Simulated assay, not measured.
Amino acid sequence: MSTHSKTQPRPYKPMSEEDRRKQMEESNGEPVLDFSTGRVNENSTPYIDYHSVDVLLSLQHPRSDEPAEWPFYITGQIQELLFKLMFTEVNRVRDFLFEDRLDEAIWYLRRIERVQRVLTATWEPISTITPTEFAGFRNELGTASGFQSYMYRQLEFSLGHKVRRMAEAYRSVDWLYTQVTETLEAPSLYDAVLSLLRRRGMDIPEECVTRDFAEPYEPHPAVEAAWAEIYTSPREHHELYVFAEALSELNFQYSRWRTTHFLAVERIMGYKPGTGGTLGVEWLRRVAEHRFFPELWSVRTEL
């Protein structure tokens, strides 16, 4: 679950509730404006240090004079941070499931759904870019394309969309290829789901839970039958029923993000080829048709 990041040192010591009460009394409830006491970095404040704001705001380097490149550039960076957050939370849910902590898994799925809504909303600033504005900086992208995002690729792998060849985009960067490959070969969220269902007494075949996790998952009729049993007996399987709908919501919100993506691109650049060698909008349209947790989706037709 590595994201190739390290814990940062603490320039300012942590505060207790008693420390905060004392500070409030000394400031008469007004904001503290003097941070000289105990300061390690004279060019910083506690907030800057905690969020690494000075580093974060120094990472924007548009390559053209076109003003519309700014929303494109910054929104892309915001999406990368949200991919990292989702990847972290999805893997947390997966681990809860392997530990039979279903109630906690459901709670964290609630947080993931909120993150997904924010992620989808990030297309709003980009959708304001006109074709003429985009043409003003598109050439500066070279062969850079969103599908090369390693956080997005790891997120897709962690949710169960395993495509080994997609890891090849990172082979030239040793640490990154190792990281992405580890995610590819690890159990996905859906692998953990099926393992949980089997332990809870559902008729999940052994072949569905003991397999090569780097290979694409093949839907199985017995798994669809298990979901059908849960949906047709919601009182008997109440917790699993609630869990099924939480997974369905994750799937729904992810599909909304993908669909909004291809609509935004279609609006901005039409049917031009993508910068990364794809068909552009047509490629995104096909990607948007993919669904995670396949039997959970297909069972709806049978109910």
Rank of each mutant, 00 (worst) to 15 (best):
R114C: 04
A121D: 13
T122F: 09
E124S: 09
T128Q: 14
I129P: 01
P131D: 08
T132Q: 15
T132Y: 07
E133F: 04
E133G: 03
L141A: 05
A144W: 11
S145C: 12
S145K: 11
S145D: 15
Q148C: 07
Q148A: 11
L155A: 06
F157P: 00
F157G: 00
V163G: 04
V163I: 15
A167R: 00
E168L: 14
A169S: 12
A169Q: 13
Y170S: 03
Y170T: 01
S172E: 14
D174A: 13
T178P: 03
T178D: 15
Q179N: 15
E182C: 01
E182K: 04
T183I: 06
L184T: 02
L184M: 07
E185G: 06
E185Y: 05
P187A: 00
L189Y: 04
A192C: 07
L197F: 14
L197R: 01
L197V: 04
R199P: 05
R200D: 06
D203W: 02
P205D: 05
E206L: 09
C208F: 02
V209I: 15
T210Y: 13
R211I: 03
Y217P: 00
P219H: 08
P219R: 08
A222D: 15
E224P: 04
E224L: 08
E224W: 02
E224H: 06
A225N: 09
A226G: 11
W227L: 07
I230K: 02
I230P: 00
S233G: 08
P234N: 06
H237V: 05
H237W: 12
H238T: 13
L240D: 10
Y241T: 03
A246Y: 08
S248K: 09
E249N: 07
N251A: 10
